[in-house]
Design a binder for these strands. Structure first.
Ligand SMILES: [Mn+2]
Ligand SMILES: [Mn+2]
Ligand SMILES: [Zn+2]
Ligand SMILES: [Zn+2]
Lengths: 140, 140
DNA sequence: TTTCTAATTTGCAACCATTGCTAATTAGCA
DNA sequence: TGCTAATTAGCAATGGTTGCAAATTAGAAA
């Protein structure tokens, strides 16, 4: 996703308004590697702008996604996650704490079973334990 | 997933009852490669057993999944899909008709970015057009 | 600056897939 | 044939998300 400044220009050029709500969300999503849900983003946004509505957060995230500035990813954990990293990558979801981190694959594997299926996109979801949830073997 | 006969034995052995509803669902899921949702299965089941409840379909699918007879897969299309093929495989989802087909990968690719993440499971979702939706280039 | 209006925001109802709850029913054993 | 724990059906409730309409506002034009 582009910087808040670039998005401001791009929005105006497209005849879209740059509202304080949008500016806040531009800032909150820029360089955000937490893969937040709409709701978790709403929680943070609300602190900085009490009264902002969850509906607006959804609306803006959807708009940015349609503009190709964000990627909406589904990691099978209830809510959609939003990702300003729109490069071709995959995700690892911690089954303990729910954290989502980026995973890159060097080369796509050979496939069997696609007879005639034209692949447009692939997304891998890894499930397991993140480093901090694996680390300190708790005693008992 | 095992055959309806084997499941009947297994259920009784586990102290579970073999009801007509369960028997029907055993039959409908056995060798079913359509990756149905609870609701689509309910539609089919209802024809053969009017009055069966959606709740029972969900309940039975969940039970079978917990017993390892089915796999519940999330292809990012709203509803959960249920799969009697519990072997290690992946899925291709047609963006036109919604069909889901099995995909097998020969070897897992090398990964970058998992620092310390312990992978327990991987699931790849391919998105694109299935053979029948690609095939006949419609004239216009 | 003030005015104007299309775009945006809000709040709330509605939606969908799924689960919780419980009274009524029933499989399967004694 | 009776007993009872397991199951079913029905419906309310949930969580995530979207539809809708009234109120507000960014930003262009006067
Ligand atoms: Mn990412
Ligand atoms: Mn499958
Ligand atoms: Zn973790
Ligand atoms: Zn298709």
């Amino acid at each position: 996703m582009r910087s808040p400044e670039e998005l401001t220009t791009a929005f105006r050029a497209a005849g879209l308004k740059v509202t304080p709500q949008r500016q806040l969300l531009f800032r909150l999503m820029h360089n955000n590697s937490a893969h937040p849900t709409a709701d978790s983003l709403f929680a943070v946004a609300s602190q900085q702008m009490p009264g902002i509505s969850l509906r607006t957060v959804y609306q803006t995230l959807t708009d940015l996604t349609e503009m190709g500035e964000l990627q909406a990813i589904e990691v099978g954990a209830g809510a959609m996650r939003f990702d300003p990293n729109v490069s071709d990558h995959h995700h690892a979801v911690c089954e303990v704490c729910g954290a989502v981190q980026d995973v890159y694959v060097n080369e796509a594997p050979e496939l069997r079973g696609l007879d005639g299926f034209a692949v447009a996109d692939a997304h891998i979801v890894y499930r397991g334990r993140c480093a901090s949830c694996s680390a300190p073997a708790k005693r008992r």
